[in-house]
Amino acid sequence: MAVELIILGVLALTAASLWIPYIVGVNTAPDGSIPADAPDGFIIPPDPNVHRPWVRRAYRAHLNLLEQSVPFAILVLLVDRVDGFSALTLWASIAFLILRIAHAVGYITGTARFPGRPLIFTGGWICCLLMAWAFFAA
């Protein structure tokens, strides 16, 4: 099995699990901070007046991972379909995985700020472009 497909599986598992920090944050909110009769809008998307900052960032980190991983996954599957895997696709996949994990951790912890977080996101986009180039070149 190609390493690119293994990385795609790890990304899918990460995306499937990144809801956990948000749910932990919502369920460990200080007593009384979320009104008992709060509509869903207070929970999803996170209301800045209700949730702690890291909980709101966890929600956005999950969305950001989904936003960028879906196009990347489609491109990896297309490259697999045309037997286009190469050293370029291998390193683009490895870089994408590292960048996406760094983005999520940095976003949730608040350590990745401007310009770091946008640069990490842009790096992921460049990995998508490289994968697209590999598909069209195959």
Rank of each mutant, 00 (worst) to 15 (best):
I34E: 02
C128T: 00
I101K: 09
P30E: 10
A38L: 11
F85D: 07
A15V: 08
A137T: 12
G25K: 09
E67K: 08
A58P: 07
I20C: 05
W125L: 14
V79L: 01
D83W: 03
L63H: 10
G9Q: 11
C127A: 13
M1C: 03
M1A: 10
P115A: 06
F135A: 14
I43Q: 01
R113P: 09
V82F: 09
A132W: 06
V55P: 08
R113E: 13
M1G: 13
A61N: 14
A38H: 05
I6W: 15
V3P: 00
A2S: 13
P118Y: 14
T109L: 12
S33A: 13
P30D: 07
V10R: 11
T122E: 00
Y22V: 08
I34P: 05
A58N: 13
L13P: 09
L8Y: 05
G123V: 04
F135M: 14
L75A: 07
I34W: 08
R57V: 03
E67V: 01
V50F: 13
L5M: 11
V79R: 03
T89E: 01
L65G: 04
L63K: 08
L18P: 00
F135Q: 11
G84T: 06
T28M: 05
I108R: 12
L88F: 00
S69N: 14
G41N: 11
P30R: 14
A95Y: 03
L18I: 11
M131H: 01
L75I: 02
A36G: 01
V26Y: 02
P35M: 00
G84F: 03
E4I: 02
G32T: 04
I98W: 02
R117H: 10
L65R: 08
I44R: 15
M1T: 08
E4A: 10
D83E: 13
L11P: 01
S17L: 14
G25C: 04
V50Y: 11
F121C: 02
L18E: 08
V26E: 02
A73N: 06
F136S: 03
T28D: 07
A138M: 03
L129N: 01
